[in-house]
Every structure is written in structure tokens, then in C-alpha cells.
């Protein structure tokens, strides 16, 4: 399992694109939004939590189809399916690798982009914490979507249509944490629910994803 994780990480970092693309997209979005809505600081600060969360979500989406598609093309997915470790674990490891190369870097650069968007000072800690707790859910849900569409020739667009509705609860709770954090309001409930979604998704969705892969490899 460790070998698989390292292999996935190496592939993501080496083959270019996958790793930097999501981050660059996230950065671009944070630059484009102020250009679109105007430079007025108060308004930017108010919409910053939502923009950053939507940006993280879309940046995550960009690299999802690579989770299984590359392995399917060169046939290593068939090997993984017959490997001694269960397919559920393979899915979990791959989702974890995806998170390490997209979710985690996104979390780390988010405060910098918060500055661009004029995020109020109280929000930074909560922004990092909410992304840290929420992005794993994005990766696992995305891995499920990628597993469902792995056999399709033009799965990319369909993948976003399938995955985005599933992202709704994570987005709502995540952005809510930051919004409440910047306003200095109580935020234990959305924070707990956000963590619950991540944990629940990580515990259950690999099973659904693995059964989807088995169907696709049939």
C-alpha cells in the first residue's frame, strides 16, 4: 500500500500538469474574481470565503479524471484489481494521494490568496482549518466519480456533472465555517459536520467506488 501511495505521488509530481495545474487554476481564479466584481475591499472580503471554497472545489475537479484514467489506459488498473490488497484499499490510497497533491497544497496556499481577496484577519485560521478538514472529502467523493466514469471515452465533462452535486454539502459547511469565523460567530456545528462528512465519505465511499471499478473492468 505504501508502495502504491509513493508510486502515485511520484507519477503525479513527475508527469507534470496534474500537480501544478490545480494550484495555478486556484490562483488564477482568485485573480480573476476581483477583476470581475471590482476592487471594492469590503465586498471582496464578504465573498472571499465562498470564492476560495468554490475555487478549491473546482481546482480539485481538474485533476480527478487522472486518478484512475491513466491506470486504466496502460492496464495497471486490471493488475491492481487482482492484486493481493483489496480494491477498496486501492481506492482509498489513490484518493489519499490525490489529496496530498491537490487538497493539501490548496490548503497551504489558500491564506495567500485570502490576502488577494481581502479576507478579514479573523478568517485565515478557519480558512486553513476548514480546507484541511474538507478537502479530503472532495478527494474521496471525486475518486468515486472517477471510478464511475473510468470506462468512458469522454468522461471528463460527465465527471463534473456527477461530482459537483455531491460536493454541495461539503461546500456549504466549509464556506459557512469561514464566514462565521470572519464574523466571530459560533462555528462548532458546521466544523463538526464538515469533519463528519470527510470521515464518513472516507469510510464508506471507497466501497462504492471499488464496486464501480469492478463493474467497469468486467
Amino acid at each position: 500500500m505504501k508502495a502504491l501511495l509513493l508510486r502515485d505521488l511520484r507519477l503525479a509530481l513527475r508527469s507534470g500538469g496534474g500537480f501544478g495545474l490545480g494550484l495555478a487554476f486556484f490562483f488564477l481564479l482568485s485573480v480573476l474574481v476581483p477583476l470581475g466584481v471590482g476592487p471594492e475591499g469590503g465586498m471582496l472580503g464578504r465573498i472571499a470565503p465562498g470564492i476560495l471554497w468554490v475555487g478549491a472545489l473546482l481546482a480539485c475537479l481538474l485533476s480527478l479524471d487522472r486518478i484512475f484514467a491513466l491506470d486504466q489506459e496502460d492496464g495497471s488498473l486490471d493488475l491492481l484489481a487482482t492484486a493481493p490488497i483489496p480494491l477498496e484499499a486501492v481506492v482509498a490510497v489513490k484518493a489519499c494521494a490525490h489529496w496530498l497533491v491537490t487538497g493539501l497544497p490548496l490548503t497551504l496556499i489558500a491564506p495567500g490568496l485570502g490576502v488577494l481577496l481581502n479576507l478579514p484577519p479573523g478568517g485565515y485560521g478557519w480558512l486553513v482549518l476548514s480546507l484541511f478538514l474538507g478537502t479530503p472529502a472532495l478527494s474521496v467523493i471525486g475518486a468515486f466519480g472517477a471510478a464511475v466514469t473510468v470506462g468512458l471515452r469522454r468522461g471528463g465533462l460527465l465527471l463534473s456533472l456527477l461530482v459537483l452535486p455531491l460536493y454541495v454539502p461539503t461546500l456549504i459547511f466549509g464556506a459557512e465555517v469561514v464566514r462565521r469565523g470572519t464574523g466571530g460567530m459560533a462555528l462548532a456545528t458546521p466544523l463538526a459536520l464538515l469533519a463528519a462528512i470527510s470521515l464518513g465519505a472516507a469510510a464508506l465511499l471507497p466501497f462504492a467506488a471499488a464496486s464501480a471499478i469492478r463493474v467497469n473492468l468486467r
Partner: peptide, 13 residues
Amino acid sequence: VFALLSRYAVNFW
């Protein structure tokens, strides 16, 4: 499952 979750999330929101 996620539709149900969204229903509650949205209520909360």
C-alpha cells in the same frame, strides 16, 4: 445519501 445531506446542509445555511 448526498441529496439527503444537502437537504440538511441547505436548511442550516
